[in-house]
Design a protein around this nucleic acid. Structure first.
Length: 295
DNA sequence: AACCACACCAACCGCGGCGCA
DNA sequence: CTGCGCCGCGGTTGGTGTGGT
């Protein structure tokens, strides 16, 4: 049902993703986070373009992606939002936890479109029409306010906190970005995404084979230790010693110092609840080739 | 059984927005 | 202001599945 694998003139693979590629992408992101989609495939040992990796991660590999049939409630939400906002699939996705914009878009075209043929839209009082040079959309007044939050959140979550601040967003960042979708924070005054990410303890392990660092969330404005993309190659010396992430010796960050590193995986709002056991297991089980992934 | 048409959906593509130098 | 690089969004494509004839 997917396009046949092919390789373009630049050596970039296209088409269906193999399990091995999925494993590589998943493992790399779980360990190092998303810091630059364009660079990521090179370091992850994937002959894919960044866009393809991003799409694969976002629509298929992300842990919270929900598969299976849409419920009646989900259908109603899609129909209502479509009436109000038009084809804002990404906004729909934020209102349907676990559903991706691509999946919603497909579902609309294959199931829902035929049910709502060309009706005249009656604008509720809380909806305004937004016109641009290329299209006209209906946007609720709440959504306009929401959108500023969404843009903020999206920028951070989709890139693993890598745009607002320059960080390679090691494991915990991707964990947090996967786990904290907008709805859970919309009503929280303690907005995690408003907080700066701070490296609590990080050593540049120059020349060594292992790095130790941990991230935390803090209101502290001291972010002088934030790593840049260049630091990524420094902190992870394997980039200099090995061709790619995949050829370096695999050792999870969690195996050496379980107590300290597990702190990375705590819910920043409710610190007593760990949130990333399954992600931990993914990385850990990779060392056991006989069992494969444990999801 | 063979053929056909349509449904489905993962993946691709192009464009626009944004940040930065 | 301009150009560039990166990213996200929405539209489209194309291979496979499925049901009807």
């Amino acid at each position: 049902m997917v396009r046949a694998p092919s390789i373009d003139k630049n050596g970039i693979k296209k088409g269906e993703w193999s399990k091995e590629e999925d494993d590589k992408l998943r493992t790399y992101i779980n360990r190092y986070g998303i810091w630059n989609w364009r660079q990521l495939p090179k370091y992850a040992g994937l002959a894919r373009c960044g866009k393809s990796c991003r799409l694969r991660w976002k629509n298929y590999l992300q842990p919270n992606v929900k598969r299976g049939n849409f419920t009646k409630e989900e259908e109603d939400i899609i129909i209502n939002l479509h009436n109000q906002l038009g084809k804002k699939w990404s906004i729909f996705a934020k209102n349907l936890p676990g559903r991706t914009d691509n999946e919603i878009k497909n579902y609309w075209h294959t199931h829902l479109k035929k049910r709502t043929p060309g009706q005249n839209q009656i604008l509720p009082s809380n909806v305004v029409k937004v016109e641009s040079s290329c299209q006209t959309s209906l946007v609720s007044k709440e959504e306009i306010n929401q959108e500023s939050f969404d843009n903020n959140h999206q920028q951070i979550s989709d890139t693993g906190l890598s745009q607002g601040i320059t960080s390679p967003s090691i494991s915990c960042c991707s964990v947090l970005s996967q786990s904290y979708d907008a709805p859970s924070y919309q009503e929280s005054s303690a907005n995690f995404w408003n907080q700066q990410l701070m490296i609590e303890d990080y050593e540049l392990a120059q020349g060594s084979s292992c790095s130790e660092f941990s991230f935390g969330c803090s209101d502290d404005s001291n972010i002088s230790n934030l790593m840049t993309a260049e630091d990524h190659a420094t902190v992870i010396p394997s980039y200099e010693c090995f061709d790619d992430f995949w050829s370096q010796p695999f050792e999870t960050d969690y195996m050496n110092n379980s107590h300290k590193d597990r702190q990375l995986l705590l819910d920043p709002v409710n610190p007593s609840s760990p949130i990333a056991d399954e992600v931990f297991l993914w990385s850990y089980d990779l060392s056991d080739e006989s069992t494969g992934w444990n999801i």
